[in-house]
Amino acid sequence: MRTNDVILQTTTKVVFFIIFLFAIHIFFAGHYTPGGGFVGGLLTTGALVLLLLAFDLKTVQKALPFNFVIVIGIGLLLALGTAAGSIFFNVPFFTHAFDDFTLPLFGETALHTAMLFDAGVYLVVVGSAMTIIQSIGGDA
């Protein structure tokens, strides 16, 4: 039967962004306070699930036209690439580098290659979870 989901859909649009922002926040906070790529990724997945709940698979796919398998691939490449970058400096794999930079807008900022790695984690988590959910949801 047709159901009226206007209320849910409207809220979701707002809530989605709150969650998404929170996910990003948690992701970035990870190195210093609880959080990190996993939670961030999973929370983003949660946000996307909420979208799927409120709308439907087709609509969401239209709005977010990602092939999540590719997202997985990119994430893995990013993580692996960060880790493997050290190969070119002939230091053990996974040797991270970090330093404090003074950037024009942000002031004193710590840049850490671990962040890039964590970004890979984030992408993989989102990609995998979404692949699974979309596959199940899309199953006939």
Binding site: G30, H31, Y32, G35, F38, F94, H96, A114, F117, D118
Partner: peptide, 21 residues
């Protein structure tokens, strides 16, 4: 040496990043 504050997360992405990968 690791430039982080959250030990668990630093273990995950740095000390034992290989596990995470």
């Amino acid at each position: 040496e690791a430039g982080g504050g959250n030990i668990v997360n630093v273990i995950l992405v740095d000390y034992r990043g290989f596990d995470t990968l």
